[in-house]
Amino acid sequence: MEWVQQIVNGISLGSIYALIALGYTMVYGIIKLINFAHGEVFMIGAFVGFYSIAGWGFGFFPALLLAMTVCAIMGMVIERVAYRRLRNATRIAALITAIGISLFIQYLVIYFRGAQPEAYPNVLSNKTFDFFGAQISSQSVMILSTSIVLMLLLQFIVHKTKVGKAMRAVSHDMDAARLMGINVNTTISATFAIGSSLAGAAGVFFGVYYTKIEPLMGVIPGLKAFVAAVLGGIGIIPGAMVGGLVLGLVETVVSAFGYSLWRDAAAFIILILILLFKPSGIFGKNAREKV
């Protein structure tokens, strides 16, 4: 039953990619910016979770909520400080700023606590049970179900609330939205807050599931999530979820065939292929280019 096990492995990995990819895609959808500092928000989430569990004895859910809150605030601060002034600047200026912010946060954390890794405490009891011959840990079930709940919550916010309506309007046409009386700045802040809180949650999940966290942990998952977002169609929320899961499964399958050293390469080959043949992604429509 090797394959059942591999699919379970792939879905667990993919759901973490999906959570990070959501933040990328939301921000891109609204201001057409690839927020490369997103992987660092993920890292900060993991560390907030770690210190609240190991230092203050929080349980899993309080730590998760705290990490999401801190990351939401951080996302808004990054937007306010770094991106707002560049909203009408060239895209490349904003992109370079994003990379700068990303490096700044990484090395700020190293400056304050050093580069050594930290082991996540065991907050979730971990029993494994047998499922059609595959060993599934209760942790991965918990993580998967929590991420599904968060994604459903996001769909609800985007489609059923006023903020969500405003987000969709701003994404569609920023100037027209402003003329209709929508506060564009607040809406963009809210987008950053929601996207960053999901990255924070992913950080805590990552810590619990993979144990090791360190200041540069956001780089590779951040890039992978970017691939996932592009794969699903950047700017499209369901696309990020599907892209994340597909990427997780592809990586697992590559390893399962014995090519574990090609795993990262596979992810980036997907990126290149998508950009060559269907730049709008799986869910993308061949829409007119707005800018």
Binding site: E2, N9, S255, A256, G258, S260, L261, D264
Partner: peptide, 20 residues
């Protein structure tokens, strides 16, 4: 005979292969 690369965090799929 399997390999990984330093800084990897997910070894489950390769371990599944080893286990089989």
């Amino acid at each position: 005979e399997e390999s990984y690369v330093a800084k990897d965090t997910d070894f489950r799929s390769t371990l599944t292969r080893i286990k089989s």
